[in-house]
Design a protein around this nucleic acid. Sequence first.
DNA 1: TCGCGATGGT
Length: 613
Amino acid sequence: MQCKTVRVAMVLHELAQKPPHRLLAEKFIALLQSSKAMKQLHQIQTQIIAHGFSHNEYIAPKIVSACAELKQMAYAHKVFDEIPDPNVALWNAMFRGYGKTESHREVIVLFSRMKSMDILPNCFTFPVVIKSCGKMKRLVEGEMVHCVVIKCGFGANPYVGTTLIEMYAAGGLIGAAYKVFGEMFERNVVAWTSMINGYILCGDMVSAQRLFDLAPERDIVLWNTMIAGYIELSDMVAARKLFDEMPRQDVMCWNTVLNGYASNGDIEACERLFEEMPERNVFSWNGLIGGYARNGRFFETLGSFKRMLSESDLLPNDATLVTVLSACARLGALDLGKWLHVYAESIGYKRNVYVGNALIDMYAKCGIIDNALDVFMSMDKKDLISWNTIICGLAMHGRGADALNLFSQMMNCGGKPDAITFVGILCSCTHLGLVEDGLLYFQSMVDDYSIVPQIEHYGCMVDLLGRSGLLDQAMNFVRKMPMEADAVIWAALLGACRIYKKIDLAELALERLIELEPKNPANYVMLSNIYGDLGRWKDVARLKVSMRDTGHKKFPGVSLIEVNDGVVEFYSLDKRHPETEEIYGALMGLTKLLRSFGYVPNILELGQGAYHD
DNA sequence: TCGCGATGGT
């Protein structure tokens, strides 16, 4: 860094000495393109101004591009505003900058400003603007831009045409996309690929295949597009057939197929393909690691990550870290999670939102909510998922008041909550027993934020009302729901009925529950518990016999604990561990100690573990 | 300076 600054200073000094005008401009452009921080850029800019180049038609766009490269579009806009009559190149640099930083709204706003000033766009303007319209799903604006394209005489431009096809196809207007394709002057392989991908986006693989067969040229990207299309439809056989037929495969194609097997649940095929790969990059490892994670095989997620570190020279990227952290969260692997936290920062992911969010979730799920809060507070960029993760995390930990506080902070920061935010909020209200607030939040969700309540929200409300003993109101919610109540809702209601001894409603809930999930043994366990509460032990015994006869066996709920370098799974009365004797010996000791302090174990609750055999 | 393909989070 120091060295760079010195070098910049030297070049600047050299420039100050002597200079034919053109040469000086070129040097400034080269400097701008190599600038790696705003501090450097300001230094260069100072010299540019001192030499009277700040309004130079070649240099001004490069200043804007350099800002965009450093993701400083606010500053770029200031530079832009100070130039009295910007040329098209400068406008284009602004569009590109906003496009690159995903500020598509600004692209559209700026384009209307350009049009209102009667400045003519050129062929470099349209692709960026059209892309932003597509990303914002603003098809009406997109069509207007299309009109400008035609008016300006760029209707036949292949670059413009390709982005138009993409925009229309992504917006579901496949007919409009095909019209553009049909009217294109020269259709190269990129245009064909966009059109074919358009059909794939619309789920029309037949038309995609037809066009693919007609394509005059097929490059590696086009083949890969087709393969990805079949994968999207879960047709791994067709995908694999194309993959085997293609004349030359690159690592991206291998990765596409690898991910295809992973997302279609065929983890064995995924493993086999991974071993066969002639070349692997970080995406390949992420495919394998993510494949295990998506299929719930979290031990293997961690195992393959360790393998990546030991047998490849590749550094994990943010996606790798996020996947592994989520596996830690699921397994409760706190030590590894903490190690990943340090490691991620050491390889430059301290300010990464994805990684930050995954860390919040990992700490929350591993029970260290204060660490989750620390990570959250330390993040300078937070997105909706950051807020949701911490709010739901706090709610899960019973810290409803903190969750609600953060929610109002979120509102003060101008955050827009979504359906998941409100799941956290309603859940917090449940923990706090805040029936009135819960009802108000539910209403506010609908009225103020136009969020259509999903079944999860009704579930929260039924839980909230039920736990407070307002079973009639809870039942009213169930009746008013626009969708069929699911098992989660009946189970919440049933749980509340058990606490408040509402036997008639309990029977109704149970009836529905058994209709919905005739094979879920948990429902019979619940029924058995209710009989138990009522002292109907004969019914309990009868139920146990009938469950054994029908083969309904409840899988034991397992717990996970991190031991040394790994994670061990165990359940109530488990005897699978090699050190079982020592473990239970220690447990007996602990229980004795607890009893000596007056602790009385809850025998009734223990009895619920009786289905483990 | 410009347009097509692969990974990740509540």
